[in-house]
Design a protein around this nucleic acid. Sequence first.
RNA 1: GUGGGUGUAGCUCAAUGGUCAGAGCACUGGACUGUGGCUCCGGUGGUUGGGGGUUCGAGUCCCCUCACUCACCCCA
Length: 419
Amino acid sequence: MKYTALKGVHDIFPPDIHIWQKVESVAKDVFTAYGFQELRAPVIESTDIFIRSIGETTDIVEKEMYTFTDKAGRHITLRPEGTAPVVRCFVEQHLYNLPSPQKFLYSGPMFRYERPQAGRFRQFYQIGAEAFGVAEPKIDAEILSMLKLFFERLGLKELNFEINSIGCPKCRPDYRKALLDFFSDRLEGFCPDCRRRYDQNPLRILDCKVAECIKLREGSPHVTNFLCTECREHFEALQSYAELLAIPYAINPEMVRGLDYYTRTTFEVTCKHLGSQNAVAAGGRYDLLVEDFGGPPTPAIGFAIGMERITSLLKLSADQDIPSPKVFIAALGESAGREGLVIAVRLRLKGLWAEIGYAGNSLKSQLRRADRLSAQYVFIIGDDEIRSGKVKWKLLSDGSQGEIGFNEIDTFLAVPPKA
RNA sequence: GUGGGUGUAGCUCAAUGGUCAGAGCACUGGACUGUGGCUCCGGUGGUUGGGGGUUCGAGUCCCCUCACUCACCCCA
């Protein structure tokens, strides 16, 4: 094959595209009901926007960004995630001057240079939402409830909602220190990755899947025991609101985040049917990021849904409704073909999906094609029908057929079939 | 970046180192002049991912390379 798509990217086309469209429309409906409006930010931004927000020492920034210089030497990066561009827009466009809160949804491709595997791609799609201006934990719970509704509408089950609080710049250093103290005397037993994490990002040790490390970290301090008063109250209030809204969450004090900007609430929705990349949605609070970008102090919270992971789950479960034509017009001969073409265009004018057969195909093959397309009706037009001014109709589901005049077609199709 | 697995028809897969690389599905034509699905018969479709090597002989063995895939790292 001479021309192929790049590694880690993929084409989306029928029949899968119908699942994608379904997910997008459900998200838009549900998020709209929660007061979110669409915001479309560019796919490219200045590189420093991502370095500043995601964090200089994160994997994303250190080795996963698609970065290049344009013809004027500007440093440009294809967005690896959606929050930073939205925050940049929020500040640059002074959206904080609009009535608070401001709530936005977005969707589109993200780019990360990684080795692809199940559920992980170099160009991948996210649907995300960001809410600005509310410090109250009520909105944290609302966002969880919005996700719950979204998944319910899609018929997705067996999902786990996990929440955590990673504190704020006031309390997190205490926790970090406690963690370092706890690990320091047993560091030798940990895997090489964890020993590296000890220096770079000790919270990540909590995430390690190596059996030895899991055993060694038993009894390690929990972040939730180190929260300052404000963070603890926020987290407790979130839990009570989540219970009020019947969100079946679990607290996972070992859940950590790969982006530096998170504060307090973090959450993840996972599904065990996904393989090792099992998060279908994840997000959290980032109360300091807007200020970091030069805006006024503005608490905020957001999340992103991984489209590929959702659609792969739907492909497992779903009875997919693939759209099919209302009418297939099978014509035999040139003059019947002309008549069929005119009828098809007239039906399309009314918004009905009409397909026609083309020259050189026998009636049998046209019917076969109609059957493959799952057309509801076939209209058969030949010399006889042209002479009599009628079309023969056939209902494919039960094989019944009859005749109607050319001018009766519209009313005929308006009446639902008995089958 | 690291490690494993797999590359044969559009798809899913056969073929002990030995005739002309096969089957099912799909597509297409016919059995049935103008009636789909079911059945039967025929047809189209291949650089066996690419390159090199071993051999009388390679889809099969070896090396290189590319792609896909799963996992690690990390993450949606």
